[in-house]
Design a protein around this nucleic acid. Structure first.
Lengths: 303, 303
DNA sequence: TCAGCGTAATAGCCTATGGCTATCAGTCTC
DNA sequence: GAGACTGATAGCCATAGGCTATTACGCTGA
């Protein structure tokens, strides 16, 4: 059996006439009769009652007509779906970020993407850095957002990346703290301080980031109370619980209750990178990267 | 596009190899390659990534594979359904009875039918006699159960019928009623009595039947209170509300509280007929009639 | 490193079959 | 009863689906 049989059958069942159905199919009537007969022979069921001058569906023909219509529609839908998927108009895009906070740099691109590809299902996960790279490799993630890709220096093969953002790191300190007097502040100067992490939606991203920064200049930081929301952080500092580090782009409005000091360490930068597998066949990913490329200039201006 | 394309595509997607898929399809590999290429050209979408030595599905191919499997299964199901319908193993049988009570003669046949054709959906309606005949004509009913088909004498054309049952009519009367003394009771003797109809599930069938019996011997009966269930009737008679008529097969167990008297009118019979359109193409109907034919002897023995 | 196997693609032939025209055999209508 | 419908039948033709032979390229292993 072929779709042709279903198409022809449906046309006859619709028109209840071989002649008219043949005309609508742009087919000669005998060809149609033959195909219908072949179909009936193959499934072993009479689908039409044809008394010399009139055609009607048998019971079996009636149920088969319903099925045939559904199947023919299904074929059309399948083709449409495949085409939409090929154009990236449908499908899925799985983004994993090292911290929900870093997503604050993506909304513009996500909005652009959603406007252009409204039927692509975008899901966002939070993972630690190594899990993101592993997820990319095993194909469970399409795009990762990480602080400093491990391959920055060694250019780890098998990944592609694009720097979304680079900006200085600033410390938030209490104005009454002795360090507030210092003109130039380096990270090592904070070596004996208590660091306050943001624990946004349960993520340890901020804490891990501060720890890796501290380790890069040779000390292991002591951590204090965490805050649930980013906006709680200045208050904690003002209350004297400790200091904290954030990217300069996160700076809160100035206030007498806390101070921002850009750290003087020359190599200390907050960086945000998009990572993916180069040559990935995911069309939504490639479409997203294209949009991201256009948006990056705007992001860079926030440095 | 033809089903062939879907079948071939599914085979390749399954095997992820043109060679093996071709083997499983008992087809030469180049033929398969050509068909897949035709399919891709027609829908305008690359379904496979083939680097020289390995085959994998594209995103579009993956979604199309899902659809293709569903469609191919659907085709099989459609054929099975059509075959089952043609054999009467599925489909529907719509029975309309003049009163729910009359169905008490059908259960045996219905049970036999259900055992043999468990997937046929049997629906039972209640209609007045003329509506049953009209329903049969317009094809909304497959089989009718009526008291005395209007065509009994004239042999109304366009209908076929079979007598399911013929039995005497009995009156239920109160033992203290003067008529209880009479040796032989005819329907006309009850001309001035109050008749108690059963109004089972809201049906007027019993009342209509008594009225037509009375009219056939020349009087218009007066009706009294109705009872909701058949079993309420003897109690009503015992309480002196009136008399009633039932088929002899309905006789309740004997009791000092009420009397059964077979009416002496020679032509007065309770009859139950099955009616249908001869030559109907409904396979379930024909199967049911066949079963009914076998069961009728058992029914006749109840006269 | 290169031979050998295994992959899919290409080229070109052949025939099975889907489609055609011409015709027939009935029905219904006027 | 003539004519205009209907669908079925017969038989021809050409498209295209299938075949074999071959090519082009990777991977594997001695």
């Amino acid at each position: 059996m072929e779709l042709r049989h279903l198409r022809y059958f449906a046309a006859v069942a619709q028109a209840l006439s071989f002649t008219r159905a043949a005309a609508s199919l742009r087919l000669a009537q005998p060809s149609l009769s033959k195909q219908i007969r072949n179909l009936e022979d193959e499934i072993g069921v009479r689908l039409f009652d044809r008394d010399r001058n009139h055609v009607s569906l048998t019971d079996a023909g009636t149920v088969f007509f319903d099925e045939a219509k559904r199947l023919l529609d299904g074929v059309e839908d399948a083709v449409k779906l495949a085409r939409a998927t090929a154009e990236g108009k449908t499908g899925k895009l799985r983004i994993a970020a090292i911290s929900p906070l870093t997503l604050s740099f993506l909304p513009a691109s996500l909005v652009h993407f959603r406007q252009k590809y409204p039927d692509v299902h975008v899901s966002i996960f939070e993972r630690i850095g190594s899990d993101i790279l592993a997820g990319l490799k095993e194909g469970t993630i399409d795009l990762g957002i990480v602080f400093h890709p491990g391959f920055r220096k060694g250019r780890r093969p098998g990944f592609a990346s694009k720097r979304l953002l680079q900006c200085p790191v600033v410390a938030i300190i209490n104005p009454s703290h002795p360090l507030a007097e210092k003109q130039s502040l380096s990270l090592r100067d904070l070596k004996n301080e208590t660091f306050l992490p943001i624990r946004f939606t349960g993520s340890n991203g901020h804490r891990d980031w501060m720890e890796s920064l501290a380790r890069s200049v040779g000390f292991k930081p002591r951590f204090g109370q965490d805050t649930e929301t980013p906006d709680g952080l200045p208050g904690m500092v003002a209350a004297g619980y400790g200091v904290s580090l954030v990217a300069k782009v996160y700076e809160w409005p100035a206030s007498p209750a806390y101070l921002f000091r850009t750290l003087s360490d020359p190599d200390l930068k907050f960086e945000l990178h998009a990572v993916w597998i180069p040559g990935s066949t995911s069309i939504p990913l490639n479409n997203f990267l294209e949009i991201l490329g256009g948006d990056i200039h705007a992001l860079q201006n926030r440095e």
